Amino acid sequence: MSLFKLDNVIQNYAWGSKDSINQLFGIVNPNHEPQAEIWMGAHPNGCSKLGTTGEPLSEVIDQNKLDVLGGYTAARFGGLPFLFKVLAAETPLSIQVHPNKRKSELGFERENAEGTPLNASNRNYKDPNHKPELVYALTFYKAMNGFRPIEHIVALFEEANITTLNIELNVLKAIGDSDALKAFFSAIMSLEGERKEAALAELYAAHARPAKTVMGREALQYSKEFKQHYNDDIGLFAPLMLNTVELAPGEAMFLHAETPHAYVQGTGLEIMANSDNVLRAGLTPKYIDVPELIDNTIFEPIKPEDIRLNPVLKEGKMSYPIPVDDFGFDILSATDESKAQYLRSAEILFCVEGVATISSEGQSITLKPGESVFVSNNSSVYQYQGNGVLARAYN
């Protein structure tokens, strides 16, 4: 067999939506819990199972990695190198930075040597891997991604009139390079006591005033909404420093390692390298290791117009440019005409809308919205047809 319909884990994190997954895919929520994420893959914290037998996907892979994953992926990664998700955020997730591959390896080794338990609240490195991510919006999807251009940061702090930070802001304005941005971000992350209270009071006063610019209105609105969930949190300054973005359904963006970001609200598909390494920078009651955060952050602004990815459209398939080899992501349009897709590794196909039938070596599986199938590499090729849209995760 080379096609396996998946039974996937739903994670009930507190920030999840109680109705979005049900409305989009008809997946029941009998206890009316937050349904935050559907996990598709072989991750130990939420491994998919085969719909027919209940066998964990990880066991299927481990029984014959060479056939299931293909020679390159088996040798390069030793397992399925990505985790594919539906992510439905009702309230903001924490502001995060993910370390790069080399620093993840060093940090994981160091914390192991120090004897820090993997489940310790102050553990930064849960594994030796990096965690680049792609998000594809299924609904309008609010987020933050990367530092704003420095002149925008200066303008927003001046508009908000955060006079407590005038000294740091004037240095950033005068020098305007990545070192100055690092110093400014570090100063905000290190605010405490009366100075933190004064800066937040000035920010709250800005929330109450009419905005003077479109950029200021959006940034302060994000901050004001964050305050409803994380009062007096240092992350309330983040929208003044980070690009705010709202993806429309069908738009996608990439989130690089060492780049601060946060998912704010909306439902989308997310694909990432297999890792749990997270360094937090606000909007959280959890541990924040400021020195480690600073050491793992690149202080290079991202132009707002460069955030959205431009897919390459070819023969009914949209391919998204991704600068890592852990995963690839395509959107396939299934029509009445059967189309062939050749494999270079194992894949997971998720039905976004409509109905699509996946066929290979005499097997056929029909997917409805919210359903997914694992395609083993040993099938070499599969066909898809129907009247729907499929999201394709591969590497």
Rank of each mutant, 00 (worst) to 15 (best):
I61A: 04
G328F: 07
P369A: 07
P117G: 13
Y72Q: 12
D336A: 14
L343G: 11
A42H: 08
H43L: 04
V373I: 14
L390M: 08
A273W: 01
A219E: 01
V28C: 13
S223C: 01
D127N: 10
R217I: 07
N395A: 15
I162F: 03
A89H: 12
A219N: 00
L66N: 10
A155H: 02
I358L: 07
L367P: 04
R123D: 08
F184S: 04
P92K: 11
S360R: 09
N145I: 06
I167Q: 10
L66F: 13
I365N: 08
E33Q: 15
E371K: 03
F226H: 01
D336F: 12
K286H: 05
Y72E: 15
E109Y: 08
Q265K: 10
P44G: 15
E300L: 14
P285H: 05
K65E: 10
M272Y: 05
D179P: 13
A346I: 07
T297H: 00
H207Q: 15
A36N: 06
S2T: 14
I288P: 10
A143Q: 01
L106P: 05
E197F: 12
G250E: 01
I162W: 02
Q11G: 07
P30K: 06
A183N: 14
Q23G: 13
Y320Q: 02
S121V: 04
P311Q: 08
L269A: 12
S376Y: 13
G266K: 10
S364P: 05
V389M: 10
G266S: 09
N310T: 14
F237S: 06
I331W: 03
Q35A: 15
E202F: 02
M40C: 06
V324W: 03
K286F: 05
Y141L: 05
N277V: 00
E194H: 14
G51L: 12
V154G: 02
N124R: 05
V290Y: 05
L247Q: 10
P304T: 00
E270R: 02
P260I: 03
N231E: 13
P99T: 02
Q23F: 03
L390D: 01
N170T: 07
D306V: 08
G70N: 08
S104Q: 09
D233C: 11
N387W: 11
S360C: 11
L343T: 13
K85G: 04
P56G: 05
G26K: 02
D179C: 15
Y384V: 12
L332M: 14
F77S: 09
R148P: 09
G70V: 00
S379P: 12
G362H: 09
E292Y: 07
R392K: 13
A219L: 04
F329A: 09
I27P: 02
I322E: 09
E371F: 04
A155E: 07
E192D: 14
L242M: 07
K227C: 12
A89S: 13
A160N: 02
A75H: 13
E59P: 14
I188Q: 02
V352N: 14
A205W: 10
F299I: 04
K317P: 10
E246V: 03
L172K: 03
A334S: 12
G107I: 04
T139W: 02
G362A: 09
F84V: 04
F108M: 09
R217L: 10
N274K: 06
F4E: 06
G266T: 06
M272S: 00
F299N: 06
F77V: 03
E251R: 06
V290A: 01
G235M: 04
